[in-house]
Write a protein that binds this DNA or RNA. Sequence first.
DNA 1: GCGACAG
DNA 2: ATCTTGTCGC
Length: 228
Amino acid sequence: MAYYRPPGPPADPIIVRDLTRLQDEMRTRVRQEALAREPQFIAGCDSSFPTPETILSVFVLLRFPSLELVEKVWSVGPVEVPYIPGLLSFREAPNVLRTYEKLQQKPDVIMVDGHGIAHPRRMGIAAHLGVLLDMPTFGVAKQKLTGTFQEPALTKGSISALTDRNGELLGEVIRSKDKVQPLFVSPGHRCDQATATRLTLACLRGYKLPEPTRLADHWAEEFKKELK
DNA sequence: GCGACAG
DNA sequence: ATCTTGTCGC
């Protein structure tokens, strides 16, 4: 059952019910833990939609902590699921997974554009991808999906907690640059909050977005041109 | 009942 | 996400 009705054409209630069940099953496989060792490579991924029926996904691989770009891959595919808040992963994950396979060097951890457990059912796309890849992942989102928080101070590095009504910690709200809208960082799979936050801060280079996400975003734009 | 709603 | 021009603030 849907927990709310998104604007636009109503989503097929049957599809919503089935995907939600699948999501709840996947949630039972999520683990939160510290990384086994300090990462040598960190990946960033992002997807865009050149046309309403086409998805273009990108993976960038950076050496850590130098953040030097060592690899970038992309792939396009068909869009088969509509955008339904809370079920975003089912729309993007298939193509993201095909893109991941193209990486020559696999990362130690993946920074995903979207939420990790800061999700209504604790299964944002970062956790979803982490379970399917059985890889450490965490999410960095630009907008809140669920939870409440106090506005962090306006200076870079300020942090506040993102919690649900019961006080459960869902993630942390981070001011990645002076006076910009904060980022929402949450663990995905095989990663904990402290690690997610630490890595996000370690990937800042003067921009609002941490390098893995920023570069994935940048290359998505570049690759989009190659389609024409 | 009203509002909220990743990308 | 995507569509779109100029504009305010540092």
